[in-house]
């Protein structure tokens, strides 16, 4: 296995987060969520329930969405992890972020990072999802403020924006 070693009860783990390769020390019982927030100080990923029910801690691991509270940090050894902090390109928001912002798809905002990561995963595999597909794919993320209406519309809008951007890029 690559990327981790043993010492004093803690493990050294190497992962790539938002494009930067980094190493950290962790106990085997620590979750990826805890390490992201407390060790790597990437607090954009939120903790809502610690047992995989709410989706607030969703990040992409090797391109797939995971609830980082159910992934042990040592399991992430060698992985490419993308968090909410790695979505914007420099100071430019990506289409999902812009659509959430302009569509008022957040109220308190605590679930927003998880929804954005899940939506990124959806649009990567299905660039033109139907409303039904969006609702199904986001069903693991709980939002208590918005009633989901504007979140679903924001994902629809993001799909349009991304398609338009790609067409512009091609022409």
């Amino acid at each position: 296995m690559t990327g981790w070693g043993v010492g004093m009860g803690k493990r050294i783990v190497q992962i790539t987060v938002n494009g930067d390769t980094t190493e950290f020390l962790c106990e085997p019982r620590q979750t990826l969520l805890e390490v992201l927030r407390n060790t790597l100080e990437l607090t954009g990923t939120k903790e809502g329930c610690s047992n995989g029910n709410c989706g607030a801690c969703t990040v992409l691991m090797n391109g797939l969405p995971v609830v980082s509270c159910l992934v042990l940090a040592v399991e992430a050894a060698g992985a490419e992890v993308r968090t909410i902090e790695g979505v914007a390109r420099g100071s430019h928001l990506d289409e999902v972020q812009s659509a959430f912002l302009e569509g008022a798809a957040l109220q308190c905002g605590i679930c927003t990072p998880g929804f954005i990561m899940q939506a990124e995963a959806l649009l990567a595999r299905n660039p033109q999802p139907t409303e039904e597909e969006i609702r199904f794919y986001l069903a693991g993320n709980l939002c208590r403020c918005t009633g989901y209406d504007k979140i679903v519309r924001a994902v629809q809008r993001a799909a349009q924006l991304r398609q338009a951007a790609q067409q512009n890029g091609r022409s």
């Binding site: 407390n38 912002l101 905002g109």
Partner: peptide, 23 residues
């Protein structure tokens, strides 16, 4: 009108600091 909220960018980029983010 429907302007973009002032705290919006922080909340879609993960920069907004919630209670448990305090260190």
């Amino acid at each position: 009108t429907r302007p973009v909220r002032h705290d919006g960018v922080d909340k879609v980029t993960g920069r907004a600091k919630y209670g448990a983010d305090q260190r």
